[in-house]
Design a protein around this nucleic acid. Structure first.
Lengths: 115, 115
DNA sequence: CTGTATCCCCGGTGATACTG
DNA sequence: CAGTATCACCGGGGATACAG
């Protein structure tokens, strides 16, 4: 399903391969919200990253969908609405995202916005 | 210590901030070996990624050192030798790297080298 | 509301040669 | 052995306008 090319490395390659799926800009943020909070709409996801362009939002979501991590559902509403949710496959990333979230809070967060 | 700029996002930002430290090309691979296997020399680290240039190797290691995750020690040998090891701070990333390693093995590895 | 189409720029990365 | 110095490329990502 994933058609992203994998670089050739030896042991430790699996770490890199995991990284490739989630290292796109803001991908991990969207995965975090979709995994631990549930489905969100396009406009809601956009609000999670202030200033992100619709183009980037679409590109990142498309990547996640292409990799089978999230699913895109067009709701029958007017005006049009689209719901994004994590797939079963995507949900297996929960431990990874959670450990990153925890580490960021414990060891890195104090370095943010230190201006 | 880390001087990398953090993007403005809301909750979930800590996930992204963690990613920024380890998402450089091959950084996660080096962290994996240094955390779970111990110290390595420059030339040994180079062998973990076949084809990597000395330039990229130096850049990635320099980034990791600047972020305080690894330490660089020049050994008194002839010819010159340099040993790289993980710092206490870098070792706190163990759960993150480990979860990525496990996920890559469990859910992603079968998609590698499928040519 | 949810995107796509263009244009464009910058920095991450590769290739290669050189150095202590 | 362990890097640094240059040059060059390309694709990720931003700005903006347009579309269903």
């Amino acid at each position: 399903m994933a058609k992203r090319k994998i670089h050739n490395c030896l042991d430790g390659c699996s770490v890199e391969s995991t990284l490739q799926l989630i290292s796109g800009k803001w991908k991990s943020v969207f995965l975090y919200h979709l995994i631990f909070e549930g489905a969100y709409r396009y406009s809601e996801l956009q609000r999670f990253v202030p200033g992100i362009t619709k183009r980037m939002l679409s590109l990142q979501l498309k990547d996640l969908e292409t990799d089978g991590l999230i699913s895109r559902i067009v709701l029958q509403e007017k005006p049009i609405a689209v719901s994004y949710s994590v797939t079963d496959y995507g949900r297996t990333l929960a431990p990874v995202i959670e450990s990153m979230y925890d580490w960021g809070n414990s060891f890195n967060l104090h370095q943010l916005n230190t201006q």
